[in-house]
Design a protein around this nucleic acid. Structure first.
Lengths: 357, 357
DNA sequence: TACCGCAGAGAAAGCCCTTTCCCGCAGGGA
DNA sequence: TCCCTGCGGGAAAGGGCTTTCTCTGCGGTA
């Protein structure tokens, strides 16, 4: 691997001059030397050693991002927003997947700190786990003490800058919609209960039902992985226990898609026999059939805000931006089936086939 | 930011000893000093400067990956495979999105080289662009000359290690399937024509049709972006020009989903009035309604192979592994509608509504 | 008792850059 | 003619770490 001094030697100049030419330093260099250096660079296929550069100019520029999984559309959208701002500012992003493993999350904070990132963004749900939360906060505080900036997306545990999707209101909107359509027997396909995202959304949902004099008993909530297969499986358990369910709320769209698959596999018509609601409004939501009724979160915007927060000048006080959730009515939520409206909670099997497509 | 010498000073030892303790060097250190160093590390919240470390031990370990877009399911799957092997081997991955921009691709090769990666993996389609291909090959060759390993996934341009999905056969399988179902008026929703993936798949498709005495005239191929919206738009153009089409082959699943959306928007029943085929078999393919008939590529496996190739010991000769494509029959491809079977190519509007759902 | 060997610790030489500081030289003003 | 200024270039000092080499002091053997 060619080094800067190789280039300098070949060009017959000092490493200092070579460096100046290569980095377009403000210090003037005569055209002749410049040419010679450039020629040497080309001949040797010289590429500066990034680590040496980063070490020499102790000038933090990259931004670290920790998400659960970039290939999950939820995070893909957020990341798109992050990228947009970062690219505008000429910042490099280092993106790490924690795969919802708290330990890995902690490790990545260290790793990114070690890589001298200028800022750190943690996106994704927080955990109901005191010990972990404390540890994370310590690490984050240590990082901030050295001048690093931190922002979180959708997590309560950090006391500094944050952008928070309004999960609770989102859950509330879903609940109110379903109540408005007359549903009483509502099942919930939930993500892991250790995630604050799950409990926040659930809380909003429960509030809406309670206000309408409905209940949400614990057996009507099934917890599973926050993905398609988790949704499919939880829905199956729900339906096995409670065949008279007229609506299912999935706590994210991936789970909703799994729910749809299970429901379809059991020959239930959506929304005629059973309604399904999603959450997040991922791009695919409009493309499934029937198109998914869901609660939209401004994912890209969340990314944009978080990155702006973290790169923003000034802003001495920690800021928390709450971004609103919004109900998107499409085709998977309909009025409660007539046959069950009067007798909700009884007549378990009577419904099947009542309405034909 | 605390440094190693801060730690050493605090522990009352030399930096050398501190380093040895922190990195678990093989050189023995007495327990007492070890404890003191560890305590100092904890108190100072010390994290080694990764750049300094990487610079000091000139020991390349990370692997660079260049894909079009990790959040595209195609690459997400491949990346999953890459990750699996990398994690097993304790390697860090640096993943870069080129967004199908050749210049950006070139830049990333340099960037990753500068970051001293031990190997480089390029995944995604190649380009029909002589100048670019030559430049890329030069850069890759220069990198390999310094001991770097390179593997490509699905690209022809590199002469070394490669894993190639059998795009051509995949296209062939799609064509044969459609011919078997009696289709003659077949439209193609293709990705950018500059991509070799597009042309390979197209070539296989064309071969199948030719063998069956069918034709694939150029106007029946519409090129667009390789994503959902590109597919929707190309399908619209196709249908506008050729309302009598009985089948559409989309050259990837994202486009197929867009095609499905357009077809549905025009009130055509799938597969009764029109068949739609996808390509890749992304996870979502089974969840759309009707479930997508498509050509499966072993995406995760492609990633696993490529990473193994590049990290593999020995293997002096460049190896090319071709991974087979496979037709997955689901619900979007059916026999050609009766009304058109005899009159294919004429009676433009007659078909609509022939079969009712 | 003298010497050898070795364990455990530190000194110092890099790793490859950037950047400050300094130097020589040429040109312009007094 | 002399001095000052300013420009273009190089020397050298880091930046934070790893690792080799060196040194000290101890135990064991002859």
């Amino acid at each position: 691997m060619a080094t800067l001094s190789d280039v300098a030697r070949r060009a017959g100049v000092s490493p200092a001059t070579a460096s100046r030419v290569i980095n377009g330093s403000s210090k003037p260099v005569t055209d002749e030397l410049r040419e010679r250096v450039l020629a040497a660079v080309a001949e040797l296929q010289y590429v500066p050693n990034a680590h040496a550069q980063l070490l020499a100019r102790s000038h933090r520029s990259a931004v670290g991002v920790i998400v659960h999984d970039v290939s999950d559309p939820y995070f893909a959208e957020i990341t798109r927003g992050l990228q947009r701002v970062a690219t505008d500012q000429g910042r490099l992003l280092m993106i790490c997947n924690s795969y919802r493993d708290p330990d890995r999350e902690l490790e990545y904070v260290e790793l990114l700190r070690g890589h001298q990132v200028a800022a750190l963004i943690l996106a994704g749900s927080g955990y109901h786990d005191e010990a972990f939360t404390r540890q994370l906060n310590e690490k984050l505080a240590a990082y901030e003490a050295t001048g690093g900036r931190v922002a979180v997306i959708g997590r309560h545990e950090h006391s500094g800058d944050a952008v928070m999707p309004d999960n609770r209101t989102g859950g509330y909107l879903a609940g109110r919609e379903l109540c408005g359509l007359g549903h009483r027997a509502i099942g919930v396909v939930a993500g892991p209960r250790i995630l604050t995202t799950t409990t926040d959304r659930l809380a909003g949902l429960r509030q809406a039902l309670t206000e309408q004099g409905r209940e949400l008993p614990e057996p009507r909530i099934r917890y599973a992985e926050f993905d398609r297969d988790g949704g499919a499986e939880a829905t199956a358990r729900l339906l096995d226990a409670d065949p008279e369910l007229t609506a299912i709320v999935a706590l994210n769209d991936s789970m909703a898609i799994g729910a749809l698959a299970t429901v379809r596999a059991r020959g239930l018509a959506v929304p005629q026999q059973i309604s399904v609601l999603g959450f997040d409004d991922m791009p695919i939501a409009r493309d499934v059939t029937p198109a998914l009724t869901t609660v939209r979160l401004p994912l890209v915007d969340m990314g944009v805000r978080a990155m702006s927060l973290v790169l923003g000048v000034g802003a001495p006080t920690p800021r928390v931006e709450v971004l609103p959730a919004e109900l998107v009515r499409r085709d998977t939520a309909g009025p409660v089936p007539l046959s069950t409206r009067a007798t909700a909670g009884s007549a378990p099997r009577a419904r099947r086939g009542d309405t034909t497509s």
